[in-house]
Design a protein around this nucleic acid. Structure first.
Length: 507
RNA sequence: GGCCCGCUAGCUCAAUUGGCAGAGCAACUGACUCUUAAUCAGUAGGUUAUAGGUUCGAGUCCUAUGCGGGUCACCA
């Protein structure tokens, strides 16, 4: 044994040996289960005849109340709990003793018998036979729970966030509300796929390991292929690959997968996160706006049963149509600045300072505007809001407005005070695109880490001819936060990134 | 990366001005044939995150480190 058992674990290990001595197979291969807890209960409710409903159930021991010659215990399976009732005079001293002396909270048990109702009124299983399915050696960090007026109150619950994330298995085993978050997340993913599939999309998979990164402004993770002796990047977006597919003739493509960004972590940022991107040939951003509203409302209806939800104390209504504001109007309203009056970096920077604001120094006018947006507009958008028409210099892959070359057809959706989606009419002019890459390169040359590589292959694809198209990206983690009323992204990611204990040093 | 806060029994938390480190649950022993936070009696459980310092005396004060939480910065 490589790990020293604690006193508590030693006590349990002794029980394990006891059961083994008594001839029990501690970790059997086959389980016989005829009913889930909930099925056993509802079947009994149909008849209410004591002795009528015979079941075999399996689950994890969640509570044990021993009263001398009888025992009450609850087992828990994925969907519910069931009370077991064991009597010494029915089971015999020896078998009854196996339970009393051999079983602990956290053990997996299989039990069979007949359903009945106790004097206190709880539908329970009168156990005739039982066996162990898996012994628990380390005690779960379980609290005790009681039900008051139908509300579940847990005492001394396992709440330390660090411990919960590091030992998510224990968190899930003990805090069963947590499992519901991930059921909702799963329903969201299924609903999004269903929506897109029904709208004629093909789901595709593009490289995660990329020789060049692009499609977003973010620092990438780097890795290395030994045999090819090639440095590779973990993707920061799918965009450039998906649009290559539009060149290739797919008219509607989407991908759901993981992006990786080597940046700060926060309540809404995890180094790896799940993204949905789609591209539609012959569509522009207005068509994408309509589809976005429908898709998110559809996902809410499917995952929650409603397009209304509660988020951090606010009622949010996702029913289309959503409020739409152009970026200039939004900044007038929330930041009290009309950006049209300040057409240069210097003038805009001056008015921001004059208003007594302390935005960090930015390199371009577009970045200043973006800083204003995230400081003033984003937190104010509780109801779903489409902000559209962005500065060109922070949107190098988006097409300009026909009457205003400095503004592009781009929109973002904000809801619950968070950015949720980013979309635009995609730039499909290869000459213009090359110019934009050059401009970006210039802007970022000063800061080597954020320098944007020129993707020659992508430009070649575009030179073959890319149909006009509208593109879209959405963070699935944030959508899940919204749908499950969670204030941090870590709660909706099963294994969020945490610093390693005793590590964290750059080598 | 900056700043603030935290780290005490398996879990959740106490500990007055620097003065014997405690409780509930979990565990162990015993009682108990309808309990459900079962109850009752008893027992055990600690290098107070780590390393150093101040002090007659440190969970408490100081310094450093680790990990976490919050916040700011960063995040086309």
């Amino acid at each position: 044994m490589t790990v020293e058992f604690s006193e508590l674990e030693k006590a349990r290990y002794k029980k394990l040996l006891f059961l083994k001595d008594q001839g029990m197979e501690l970790y059997p291969r086959k389980t016989k289960r005829t009913h889930l807890s909930s099925q056993a209960i509802s079947e009994f409710e149909q008849s209410e005849e004591d002795g009528d409903v015979h079941v075999e159930v399996a689950g994890r021991l969640q509570s044990i109340r021993s009263m001398g010659k009888i025992v009450f215990a609850h087992i828990e399976d994925e969907r519910g709990k069931l009370q077991l009732f064991l009597r010494r005079d029915e089971l015999g001293d020896e078998v009854f003793g196996l339970f009393i002396n051999g079983f602990d909270l956290g053990d997996f048990i299989q039990a069979s018998g007949v359903m009945f109702r106790t004097r206190a009124g709880e539908i329970s299983l009168r156990v005739e036979q039982f066996t162990i399915l898996a012994k628990s050696i380390t005690p779960l960090p379980a609290g005790k729970e009681e039900i008051i007026d139908g509300e579940r109150i847990v005492h001394s619950a396992f709440t330390n966030p660090e411990a919960r994330y590091r030992q998510r298995y224990a968190d899930l085993a003990v805090n069963h509300d947590i499992r519901e978050i991930f059921w909702t997340r799963s329903r969201i993913m299924r609903a999004l796929r269903e929506f897109l599939d029904e709208h004629g999309f093909i789901e595709v998979e593009t490289p995660i390991l990329q020789p060049l990164y692009g499609g977003a402004a973010a620092k990438p993770f780097t890795t290395h292929h030994q045999q090819l002796r090639q440095d590779l990047y973990l993707r920061i977006s799918f965009e450039l690959y998906l649009k290559r597919l539009i060149v290739g003739g797919f008219e509607r493509v989407y991908e759901i997968g993981r992006d990786f960004r080597n940046e700060g972590v926060s309540f809404k940022h995890n180094p790896e996160f799940t993204q949905l991107e789609f591209y539609i040939a012959y569509a522009d951003y207005e068509e994408v706006m309509m589809l976005t509203e429908q898709m998110v409302a559809f996902a809410a209806a499917k995952a929650l049963g409603s397009t209304q939800l509660q988020y951090q104390g606010e009622s949010i209504d996702l029913t289309p149509p959503w409020r739409r504001l152009d970026l200039r109007a939004a900044l007038q309203k929330y930041a009290k600045i009309d950006i049209a009056d300040f057409p240069t970096y210097a003038s805009l920077e001056e008015i921001i300072r004059d208003q007594g604001d302390t935005l960090a120094p930015e390199s371009t006018r577009g970045k200043l505007i973006e800083a204003l947006l995230s400081k003033y507009v984003e937190p104010a958008c509780i109801q779903p809001t489409i902000i559209y028409d962005y500065p060109r210099d922070i949107s190098p892959l988006a097409k300009s407005k026909v009457d205003d070359p400095e503004t592009v057809e781009r929109f973002e959706v904000f809801v619950g005070g968070m950015e949720l989606c980013n979309a635009f009419t995609e730039l499909n002019d290869p000459v213009d695109q090359e110019q934009r890459f050059q401009e970006m390169r210039k802007d970022y040359d000063a800061d080597d880490k954020e320098r944007h590589p020129m993707d020659e292959d992508y430009l070649r694809a575009m030179r073959y001819g890319m149909p006009p198209n509208g593109g879209f990206g959405m963070g699935i983690d944030r959508l899940t936060m919204l749908f499950t009323d969670q204030s941090t992204i870590r709660e909706v990611i099963l294994f969020p990134h945490l610093r390693s204990k005793g590590g964290g040093e750059d080598k």
